[in-house]
């Protein structure tokens, strides 16, 4: 649903989402990176409804993920870092 305006060769960082590796641009947020790789939903509600980043400025708490073992991290406020491990904890 999103594409980067940057040179793909500059996507030199790697993040892991649910055990798979994805490239990331320095400076982009985790939420932007998830959307760029079409990794939505990024979470499910307690009743199993799919959700994804919505406001991208920290107000709605829809983009929360498990990040490096910390839960409920707002992906839109977090810049990517090489080697980050993200779990969406999606149920089938």
């Amino acid at each position: 649903m999103l594409r980067s305006l940057l040179d793909p060769a500059d996507a030199r960082l790697t993040i892991t989402v649910d055990g798979r590796s994805f490239d990331a641009h320095p400076g982009e947020t985790v939420a932007a990176c998830l959307m760029r790789h079409d990794l939505v939903p990024s979470r499910q509600t307690p009743t199993g409804q799919p959700r994804a980043p919505y406001c991208l400025m920290g107000a709605c708490f829809e983009c929360t993920v498990e990040l490096d073992g910390r839960t409920n991290v707002q992906a839109c406020l977090t810049p990517v870092r090489d080697g980050m491990v993200i779990c969406r904890n999606l149920r089938a």
Partner: peptide, 27 residues
Amino acid sequence: HTLPGVVTVGALQALLKGSATVPSGRF
């Protein structure tokens, strides 16, 4: 409005200005 793929307009602006990303498909 809670479906993945629904965002705010401000979100698109934030994605452009902060993360250099823009919509890639039909929006």
